[in-house]
Nucleic acid binder design. Sequence first.
DNA 1: GTCTACATGTCGCTC
DNA 2: GAGCGACGTGTAGAC
Lengths: 259, 259
Amino acid sequence: MAKVIVHEEPSLEEAKKIVKNALSKKKNIYILANCSVDYFGRSSSHLEFGERLIIIKSDGALLIHRPVGHSPVNWQPETSYIDVSYDSEEEVLVMKALRTRPREVVTIKLDNIFLIVEAELYDSGAFYMHISEKEIRDILAANPEILGEKFTTIDIEKKVEPGFIDLYLRDEKGNVVVVEIKRLTARVDAIRQLKKYINSLKSHMRTERIRGIIAAPSITKKAQELLLKEKLEFKQINIEALSKYVGKTEKRSLFDYLK
Amino acid sequence: MAKVIVHEEPSLEEAKKIVKNALSKKKNIYILANCSVDYFGRSSSHLEFGERLIIIKSDGALLIHRPVGHSPVNWQPETSYIDVSYDSEEEVLVMKALRTRPREVVTIKLDNIFLIVEAELYDSGAFYMHISEKEIRDILAANPEILGEKFTTIDIEKKVEPGFIDLYLRDEKGNVVVVEIKRLTARVDAIRQLKKYINSLKSHMRTERIRGIIAAPSITKKAQELLLKEKLEFKQINIEALSKYVGKTEKRSLFDYLK
DNA sequence: GTCTACATGTCGCTC
DNA sequence: GAGCGACGTGTAGAC
């Protein structure tokens, strides 16, 4: 059962003690405060003072959320080290989140804290994500007839110079078939990817005819045009229907995230 | 100044009233609770019960954060509509976040609530993102001599078949120069991108010699090898030094996000 | 570590 | 709104 401690309107000096203590105990910390944020690393940014939610997780992940927008305005991944100090000159609490690879720093200056919540959360629930591209690939490899012909699976994730062929089949006439799978609408880049693989194969085995198939639930108009131009094929796959082939779903427990 | 109301360990029925009321007033809501989450839409997923932070923002954005990991385990963007109800059979508070395009639903079932925080946050601070690739491109276009020769800028973002050429120059001898800019270390894909543009140009104007330049702060070893093989050039640019050319930084205020 | 490709990617721009 | 390229993308897997 979760342990939650709430501190309303602490002073900056109190806040410093609370946060330092909570960090040492690897608690989750949620802070509502007026703050500014500076980021320096791969890029750099400055966010003027405003009221936001700051989240520090037990693994050192840091998130700063504004009152709107679903993505954090600034963040630092779980590898970060967090330092807390009081700047008596500027009269702000300074929290610095560092990570070394890549070298990045997020600096938060807090001048007014409305709320600090310390929480010890127990969360061992497994997370199941259904039908990824990998699963589609495995289902099609095991049941290549789904693509509408009597194909034989030769290889999956076959390595060629520019990358990996999702599915490498042979058709009834003995032709080599290269399949590029997309879980969502296939776009021009998917066709380019497929063409790249075929070109690579052709440079090695020029006697055989090579067919190229895009397997996706739908295709954009531009992709369709390029497909025709390149004499490639599109096979529509029904993700909903494929789901029925999934024997066991992918399973990722919390422990996978804890290194 | 932020208005913050804290509710510790409300019953599910109380929680329902609190959340409904806060939603109607477009407040930000933060909930610490034991909950399960189901997502269905572009993909689908199921998350077993566990203790998490649920964030509902004033624009309807929804985030569910586990105690570790910097990305939310489930979420719904700001377009979502949120429905709250009590399921007396399962004895859980059900929160559904729907959005229509694409059609997606996140369903949260809460069976134990530790804390609800309602917050009205005032945040009008501007966010400045410094020196983007676009800015580097504009600086180099205005000052092509930074690349070490007397270049003349002909075009920026020149459209060619496979995409856009960052910078299109002419050197002192009258050769066409294609520049691909990377704000970070240039990798093999950058060289492939550059080569692609040059090939496209060559197919149209085969008489002229075309030079290709990768402009980046550094380059990987593999990219360097490919570069030499393809007879392309690498020009190191100092991002720090370029920053000095930035007259005005990109400015995005909160209001840009409010549609 | 670098390279490769996927992701409920998200974001911003053009048509 | 669809299409497309860039991102502090993040993430996982292979070499």
